[in-house]
């Protein structure tokens, strides 16, 4: 069915990964000073900036909810993020991704803690490679944590898909276009809940299960990277997590 060979005889993919490999992920926190919380993520060739504002006053005022916070998400691709210029006006696809992103993040955030307020999440794709919604969700959840929003859990996200009749983890741009299925998944790793599951393509039941399992495994790998980035930013990399340490105040005085 597939004309292009996406997996060679050695089991290597177009970018040299094996079927269970994640692309290189790098998360930097606190990249935007104006925002209350921010993060940038490099997910393979994806480059995404996320800014979080809030909880802050809601404008227009009539949008405010009396019992919980309003979460607003905006996913946007820069005109220069793809090889042919992308019209900066929000496309149908961006509106959809903004919505699913909001719905993927909402279950993790304790919105009822901030009634009558709003949290704004801006996701700006600077360079797009396949799987930018997953990368965006992962970065947004880290930025929300950086903004100090109460959260039940971080949200990790990763895609899996079917390429040359094999289920592979974290599909890139070519695999997305030429492959036969793409399944982005967002996952709460500690609560073990799925907050986003989309599927573009056809899978039978066993393939579906394998694909979902693989995506969740990928989410757990992404979670470890998110966690490391947060701990490094806030506690320094020399302090292993969980290590019982005296607070600086006690040392002094």
């Amino acid at each position: 069915m597939d004309q292009t060979i996406l997996i060679d005889e050695n089991g290597k993919r177009t970018d040299g990964r094996s079927i269970d490999d994640l692309r290189d992920v790098k998360i930097t926190i606190g990249v935007l000073k104006n925002a209350d919380g921010s993060a940038s993520i490099e997910f393979g060739k994806n480059k995404i900036m996320v800014a979080v504002y809030g909880p802050r006053e809601v404008h227009p005022k009539h949008m405010a909810l009396p019992d919980r916070c309003v979460l607003r998400c905006r996913y946007h691709m820069s005109p220069f993020s793809t090889d042919t210029r992308k019209n900066p006006a929000p496309s149908r696809r961006e509106v959809e991704i903004s919505k699913v992103m909001r719905e993927a993040l909402e279950p993790a955030i304790m919105l009822e803690d901030y009634p009558r307020a709003a949290i704004d999440v801006f996701v700006e794709v600077l360079q797009a490679d396949g799987g930018s919604r997953c990368a965006g969700i992962a970065a947004a959840s880290v930025a929300l944590a950086d903004a100090g929003v109460n959260m039940k859990d971080l949200v990790a996200a990763c895609a899996a898909g079917k390429v040359n009749d094999k289920i592979v983890l974290d599909i890139n741009d070519i695999e997305d276009k030429e492959g036969s299925a793409d399944m982005p998944v967002a996952y709460l790793p500690n609560l073990e809940q799925i907050t986003l599951l989309q599927l573009d393509g056809i899978l039978n039941e066993s393939q579906f299960n394998e694909c979902l399992e693989k995506a969740i495994h990928g989410c757990k790998m992404v979670y470890e990277i998110q966690r490391k980035a947060l701990i490094e930013k806030y506690f320094g990399n020399d302090l292993p997590e969980g290590e019982e340490k005296e607070l600086e105040e006690n040392k002094e005085n």
């Binding site: 109460n150 859990d153 790793p189 609560l191 966690r227 997590e241 969980g242 019982e244 005296e246």
Partner: peptide
């Protein structure tokens, strides 16, 4: 006693 934590 003073353990570093992140959400979740």
């Amino acid at each position: 006693k003073k353990r570093y934590v992140i959400p979740g």
